[in-house]
Design a binder for these strands. Structure first.
Lengths: 155, 155
DNA sequence: TGCAAAATCACCCGAAAGTATGACCGCTGA
DNA sequence: TCAGCGGTCATACTTTCGGGTGATTTTGCA
């Protein structure tokens, strides 16, 4: 069954060949074709079988080449490399120490913990935070952290 | 000039046809071909021109389609659309209210402001935050916000 | 080298945040 | 039906935060 389907073109071609040969033979026997008309005869046969060949080639040649589109998903991870928004730092006139305090604040440290980490007194950190809030125009450390992230001051 | 190049195949085919017809005519004249051998003669011609047809078809038929592999880079932008990390919510056993409070906390609201926004008392918010901190194992709202962002609980 | 800005520290006070505990209500699943 | 949970609220207390003010030292730069 599969054989028939797969070789349908070839079988059809063979049958067509047979039919044409039979036809030609019959014409010949019937004396319809004179000896003189051999040229035309050959021409017709040639054209016929050329057409057949073309058809065969087109049919048999598989559509084959498929366009393969490979969709490659590439996950970009922008947060991996944090770049400080220098412009905002300048605009807000934030000092280095204030920015540092802001970063630790964002990490969830208390003023005391920041003080310990930076080896300064609690009061110093308080001063820094107070200045920071004033410059950033916020009232709470949570607001400062939120705004800081939005402005690209902290990762 | 261009005409010649573009129709080279067709011209070649025509010429081949002419040559073969001349050849056949010559054979006929030379009495090499007897009347009896017409079948074989036709068969040969048929095969010949079928081959020609196939060759023609293959040659003429387009500079076959090339395999095109397109690597499509799809940018995934995670920050654009925030999806809540349900797994973490379940793991930490956070209630809806607690998550809500966390979100407002992350926006920089004070407990009193959150209370006003949710139309509940300050004490209620305090209870929620206390429970939240216990479940998240943190001690401060800033820590909760930081961890919440890392775990995908808040945008 | 001098000066402004930055960094440091201190004290006080009120506000906000966080801790601990107890209580009430409504819903739900065993 | 009853235990458990989520949500609500309250009181009392401690800790931390933030505002205000003032002062000294350090540092970067013109």
């Amino acid at each position: 069954m599969n054989f028939l389907t797969r070789n349908k073109q070839i079988i059809l071609y063979g049958l067509a060949l047979a039919v044409i040969i039979i036809l030609v033979r019959w014409l010949e026997i019937s004396y319809i074709l004179a000896d003189d008309s051999v040229d035309i005869y050959i021409g017709v046969i040639a054209l016929l079988f050329t057409g057949l060949g073309v058809w065969l080639a087109i049919k048999l040649r598989k559509p084959k080449v498929e366009t393969v589109i490979v969709e490659k998903e590439i996950l970009l991870t922008p947060p991996v490399v944090f770049v400080l928004n220098e412009n905002e730092v300048k605009r807000l006139n934030l000092s280095r120490r204030e920015l540092e305090v802001l970063q630790w604040m964002a990490a969830g440290l208390s003023n005391q913990e920041i003080a310990d980490k930076l080896f300064v007194s609690l009061n110093t950190i308080k001063t820094h935070t107070a200045q920071l809030f004033e410059k950033m125009e916020v009232k709470r450390r949570t607001q400062a952290v939120d705004l800081g992230k939005k402005l690209g001051l902290i990762p």
